[in-house]
């Protein structure tokens, strides 16, 4: 596979971190995409903004820390993080609670991101 800069893959995350393994499996997909130098954008909507909370301590519920894995994504070359601003407001989250440097977007901007993407995967 060769890197393709013409195609943009929009990965839309909407699950809370510990309701099922889907949040973690979505991150695993992003890591694989980064390994193959794909041009990906990550967009957190709905309950997925809860994945971004930086004070998660899930050891006592026998889960691996999703925020810790997300924090590692920039090391693997993923840098395009977007979050649905309205979802942050819904849960009352502020910037300093989040584990990634992330750009807030409006529904209009989200619609444009989807329209401009080559493919989208919803997790």
């Amino acid at each position: 596979m060769t890197p393709n800069t013409h195609k943009t893959l929009l990965v839309i995350l909407s699950q809370s971190p510990y309701s099922s393994s889907l949040a973690r499996e979505a991150v695993d997909y992003c890591l694989a995409a980064a390994a193959f130098e794909q041009n990906i954008q990550l967009l957190f909507i709905g309950d997925a903004v809860l994945q971004l909370l930086n004070d998660q301590q899930p050891a006592n519920i026998s889960q691996k820390n999703v925020a810790k894995t997300l924090s590692a994504l920039p090391i693997y070359g993923i840098g395009n993080f977007f979050v649905d601003h309205e979802a942050l407001v819904r849960y009352g989250l502020s910037d300093e609670q989040l584990c990634l440097p992330i750009r807030k977007v409006t529904p209009r901007q989200m619609a444009d991101m989807l329209a401009n993407a080559t493919h989208t995967l919803n997790f």
């Binding site: 997909y29 890591l31 694989a32 794909q38 919803n122």
Partner: peptide, 21 residues
């Protein structure tokens, strides 16, 4: 096989259709 197969699938296909859980 690994997730690279899904990455390749999105890269190589005209259309990707997801059937959610």
């Amino acid at each position: 096989s690994g997730l690279g197969q899904l990455v390749e699938a999105t890269e190589q296909s005209d259309r990707v259709v997801t059937f959610g859980p």
